[in-house]
Simulated assay, not measured.
Amino acid sequence: MLVTIIILCEIGLWMLIAAGLVSRYLLHRPRLGAVLLAATPLVDLLLLTVTYFDLRSGAQAGFTHVLSALYLGFSVVYGHRLIAWADRWATHLLQAGPRPPALHGMAYARSCWVDVLRTFASLLIAAAVLGLLVLAVGDPTTTAPLLDAWRVLGLILAIDVVWAASYTIWPKRPHADMRQG
C-alpha cells in the first residue's frame, strides 16, 4: 500500500506543478498558480504522515519506508529547483520566452558538483526522517531495517560523486545543433 501512496504522491506533485503553471500562464491567474506551486510541500507532509502511521500500526519497516524518506529528502532539497525548471520551460513554450540554456563543459561539471552537495543535503534529511521514525515508532524490532538504510544512502551519494567526477574528467560537449547555431 505504501508504494501506491508514494506513486500517488509523485503524481500529485506533478499535478500541482502542472496546475500551477497552467493557472499562471494559460489562465492568467498568477496568484492561483503561486498558491498551487506553494502547496507542493503538502504532498511531502501527507507521505510522511502515511509512512508514520503505517509503521505505527505494526508494519515491518522495509524498502518502501526508506523510499518514502528518500522521496521526502529529495523533494525538500530539489523541489524548488524542479519547480523553477518547469517554470522556465513553461515560459519558453507557452509565452515564447527564451529557451532555457543548456549547460556543457566545465559549467555542467560545476553544476554536477553543486548537485552532489544538494544530494548530500537530501540524504541527510532522509537519514533524519528515518531516525525520527525509529524514535517515534519506538519499536526496535519493527524499525531495525530503517537503520540498515545507511548503505543505500551512501550508495546514492557515491553514484552522484562518480557522475560529477566523470563530467569533470570528460566534460559534456554541446549538442550538434548548438555548435552550428
Rank of each mutant, 00 (worst) to 15 (best):
T119F: 07
L155A: 14
W170D: 08
G131Y: 11
A90K: 01
P30E: 00
L48I: 15
V76G: 04
T40A: 07
T40V: 10
A86V: 03
A109H: 01
L117R: 10
R110D: 00
S166P: 02
R110M: 02
S75C: 09
L46T: 15
F120W: 12
I5L: 09
L153S: 11
G105W: 01
A61S: 09
P98F: 04
L135I: 12
C9H: 05
D115H: 07
Y78S: 12
D54C: 12
V77A: 07
T40M: 02
W85Q: 06
A61T: 10
G79V: 06
A59Y: 04
W14H: 14
I156L: 13
P140M: 07
L55M: 10
G20I: 00
Q60F: 13
L8R: 07
L8D: 07
T51L: 11
L155F: 13
L117Q: 10
G97I: 01
R31S: 11
P41G: 08
A128E: 06
P145D: 10
L135N: 04
W113R: 01
G131M: 13
W150V: 15
A164W: 02
V162M: 13
A109F: 00
I83S: 05
G154M: 05
S57A: 14
T119H: 07
S68P: 10
Y25S: 00
V152N: 07
L37P: 04
P30Q: 00
A136Y: 05
M15V: 15
S57Y: 03
R29N: 02
R88E: 01
I7Y: 06
S57D: 10
D139A: 15
L124M: 13
T91C: 02
G97Y: 02
A165W: 07
L94C: 00
A126W: 07
R110N: 00
G79T: 10
L21W: 01
D160L: 02
L45W: 10
P30G: 01
T168Q: 04
A144L: 15
L55P: 09
L27D: 01
L155E: 14
Y108P: 00
H65F: 09
A84P: 00
V116C: 05
H65G: 10
L46K: 08
L37K: 08
G12M: 11
V50Q: 09
L2R: 04
V43Y: 03
I17D: 04
P98W: 02
L133F: 14
H104N: 11
L153P: 08
T91N: 13
A18T: 14
T143M: 06
L2K: 03
L147R: 14
A102P: 01
L26Q: 00
G33C: 06
L46H: 11
A39L: 13
L67F: 13
L94P: 00
R31I: 11
S75K: 13
